[in-house]
């Protein structure tokens, strides 16, 4: 294994985050705090409890997921798209490094950055609402699995996109609506029965539900199903990435 290569790619990607500290870490914390102000204080004042949890605390797992998903995708997609865009990808392709090692460097760094952001948001949330995590191991598991699988998804977008517009297309037009409609700010049981059924086709529902269960032991779907869905998504992403590397899709002609 070319550990030096994995290390330099990982380090390079992490350095990029430190060099753009405001954009990378401060911005998601600020937007999460704004969500707390708007949803937690303004609207939360009118909704006392959801499934026995105060509304302010109820939205924390959804907010963390919202940040994790968007950050994982944007970090990983930009990480691989930019060298393709500038042409510096030639160096990666001509180096003695396997597809797995490339993935480890880029996706590892993107997942780490998202994880850091997730933890920062959790800590920030602690300043707004009292937080209790009933199943910390499950919480950490969901956190890591989500970071990794959505970083993989971002990596796929970064390989697929051939311009900046496409790079933003999926996160803006698909992911953000799915997260907002996936129960970040409400329980799907608050929806009319027909919409509840429709919402079950949204994969993000399972992520948020499982993650929320690890905090409060309340969920929209069973935690086992949530875990299964995350693992299915992770496997699907791995298969797509494997196919992309095998065929050289958008990397090698």
């Amino acid at each position: 294994m070319n550990t030096h290569a994995v290390r330099v790619i990982y380090k390079f990607e992490m350095m990029r985050a430190w060099e753009t500290l405001l954009q990378s870490f401060v911005s998601p914390v600020l937007s999460t705090s704004l969500y707390f102000v708007v949803f937690g204080a303004a609207i939360g004042g009118r909704i006392e409890q959801v499934q026995g949890v105060s509304y302010g605390a109820f939205i924390v797992p959804g907010l963390v997921m919202l940040a994790l998903l968007t950050q994982s995708i944007s970090n990983a997609s930009f990480g691989i798209f930019f060298p393709r865009f500038t042409g510096t990808i030639y160096e990666i392709l001509s180096a003695p490094i396997s597809s797995f090692e490339i993935l480890l460097g880029y996706v590892g760094a993107a997942a780490t950055k998202s994880l850091i952001i997730g933890v920062i948001i959790l800590v920030t949330a602690g300043f707004f609402v009292p937080l209790e995590i009933m199943h910390p191991v499950w919480m950490a598991g969901f956190l890591v699995l989500t970071c990794v699988s959505f970083s993989l998804f971002g990596f796929i977008i970064g390989l697929w996109a051939d311009n900046f517009e496409k790079l933003q297309l999926i996160p803006l037009l698909v992911i953000t609506p799915l997260v907002f409609l996936g129960g970040s700010f409400y329980s799907i049981h608050m929806l009319p029965p027909a919409w509840q059924t429709v919402t079950l086709f949204n994969p993000v529902v399972y992520l948020i539900s499982g993650f929320r269960w690890s905090f409060f032991e309340v969920s929209d779907v069973s935690v086992g199903l949530s875990l299964l869905m995350v693992l299915v998504f992770l496997t699907a992403c791995l298969l797509v990435v494997w196919w992309m590397f095998k065929t050289g899709y958008r990397l090698k002609q």
Binding site: H4, A5, R7, V8, I9, E91, I92, P96
Partner: peptide, 11 residues
Amino acid sequence: VKFSRGLFGKQ
């Protein structure tokens, strides 16, 4: 330059 050396697996 340091990045390139690492990428090629060199100490």
